[in-house]
Simulated assay, not measured.
Amino acid sequence: MPNPELYRVFKLKFKLAMQDPDMPQPRYHTIIFVETNIPRPGSGFKHHVTGDIVNGMQYESVPYHISDQFEDLASQELIGHAKVSKYPTEWDSLLRTIQPPPKQKAFNIKTMKTEPVKSWAPLRFYQPGESRTPLIKCTEWVEQEAIQSLISQGLIETGSPPS
């Protein structure tokens, strides 16, 4: 029987229409989904970053129903539970403090391609064979920043929920 004081928290990964050739494959759009079941079962809120790494990304928290993109769902992982009393206010307060992925690519007129940027001032691109700083997108933001911060601040409780 579900605990009325807790919401289930999932990490969802969605297939992308187009892969980024500068990132390891396959890639997914990764979100945190909190299932509040309001107004109906499978409803809740998704927490993620939107945009791209040419313009920069921004944090977003919006209502969501888990079947909205079901055909594109690649994986669904239960990562823990959130206390109803701390959600969504404390979640949004924390997630808004985590820097979303910045601009990391620009159009290179020499190669006529959008490429990772080595430095912005002055604008310099990586040379062939040169080691590159890994690009950061939604998956890295969710997995390495957001989930870890939510767990360390006690906003996601991992393991089995108390009865």
Rank of each mutant, 00 (worst) to 15 (best):
P2W: 08
P2S: 15
E5A: 07
L6Y: 15
Y7A: 02
Y7F: 15
Y7D: 03
R8T: 15
R8I: 03
V9G: 04
K13E: 15
F14A: 04
A17C: 10
M18C: 09
Q19T: 07
D20M: 06
D20N: 15
P21S: 06
P21F: 00
D22R: 00
M23C: 13
Q25H: 13
R27L: 12
Y28E: 01
I32Y: 02
I32R: 01
P39I: 04
G42V: 09
G44A: 03
G44Q: 06
F45C: 11
K46L: 15
H48D: 15
V49M: 13
V49E: 12
T50D: 11
G51Q: 11
D52C: 02
V54D: 06
Q58K: 12
E60Q: 06
S61K: 08
S61P: 01
V62R: 10
H65N: 11
I66V: 08
D68Q: 13
Q69V: 08
F70H: 13
F70T: 07
F70K: 12
A74G: 02
S75K: 02
E77T: 11
L78S: 09
L78E: 14
I79P: 07
A82Y: 02
K83I: 02
V84T: 09
Y87P: 05
E90C: 08
D92G: 06
D92Q: 12
R96P: 00
R96V: 12
I98D: 10
I98P: 11
I98F: 07
Q99D: 15
P100R: 03
P100I: 02
P100W: 03
P101M: 09
P102L: 09
P102N: 03
K105L: 04
A106D: 14
F107A: 11
T111Q: 08
T111P: 08
M112I: 04
M112P: 01
M112E: 12
K113M: 13
T114G: 02
V117H: 04
W120C: 01
A121I: 12
P122S: 08
L123E: 02
F125M: 06
Y126H: 05
P128C: 07
G129L: 03
G129V: 07
G129N: 06
L135P: 01
K137N: 13
K137G: 10
C138N: 08
E143G: 00
E143I: 07
E145R: 12
E145S: 13
I147R: 04
Q153I: 00
Q153P: 03
G154I: 06
G154L: 05
L155T: 00
S160E: 09
P161F: 05
P162V: 05
P162W: 00
S163G: 14
S163A: 14
